[in-house]
Simulated scan of single mutants.
Amino acid sequence: MTRNQQTGKRKPGTPGPLSRWMQQKMNARMNRKVRRGRGTFMGMDVLILNTVGRRSGQPRETPVAWFPDGDEARLIVASGGGSRHPDWYVNLMAHPDRASIELPGREPVPVTPKRLEGADRAQAWQRIAAAQPRYAKYQSKSEREYPVIRLTPR
């Protein structure tokens, strides 16, 4: 038994059974709201990101905050609580050709994800941080740079 198991403590950023269960329940509730046409949470627009599990091959649905980027493109941030990439990001990068999004009250739309780098990321990050300063606050507390992904309809 490891020391963390003995003391009942988890490694930071590692969800416990209850928190993973709670997250799944909250995601399912948010997905229902988006499908009913109510796609906002804490002042942010929310979409449903449809991915495929990188190992399981099973479909996954995750509500994600998004920011406009041009006519039809949308930006999403893989913050994942700060310490590691969220599962949806890893799945998205493993199977980018199988990704789609659902906007409030609409049918799924296939998208092409592109992780932004360099000046593109910096410009997108400025717009995101201006729209939602909490993202900049979260980023300042993390040792890793949050990936910013542009989703463009196929």
Rank of each mutant, 00 (worst) to 15 (best):
E72D: 15
G81P: 05
R32D: 12
P153D: 12
K11E: 15
R121W: 06
M44P: 02
F41D: 09
R38D: 12
D71C: 00
P63R: 07
R20D: 06
T51H: 11
P110F: 04
A99N: 00
R98W: 02
A65M: 07
G80F: 10
R10A: 10
Q6I: 06
T2L: 06
A122P: 00
T51Y: 04
S56Q: 01
W88F: 00
D69G: 13
P96C: 05
Q23L: 15
G70R: 13
V46S: 05
N27Q: 07
R3M: 06
F41C: 02
T14P: 00
K141L: 14
R35T: 05
N31K: 04
I76N: 00
N50C: 11
R144E: 08
R54C: 01
P113A: 03
G39S: 10
M1V: 10
R115E: 10
Q24C: 01
R60T: 03
T40R: 13
V77A: 07
A131R: 09
K137F: 09
F41K: 08
W125A: 11
L47F: 05
G82C: 11
P153Y: 11
G8D: 04
G118C: 03
Q24I: 04
R3S: 13
P86F: 04
T14F: 10
T62H: 01
E72F: 13
M93Y: 09
T62E: 03
Q24E: 11
P153Q: 09
Q5N: 12
V90H: 01
Q132V: 11
W21D: 15
P59S: 13
R154P: 05
A124D: 02
Q58R: 11
A122S: 15
D69S: 15
A124M: 06
Y138S: 03
D97E: 15
K11S: 09
I128E: 04
G16D: 09
M1A: 14
N27G: 05
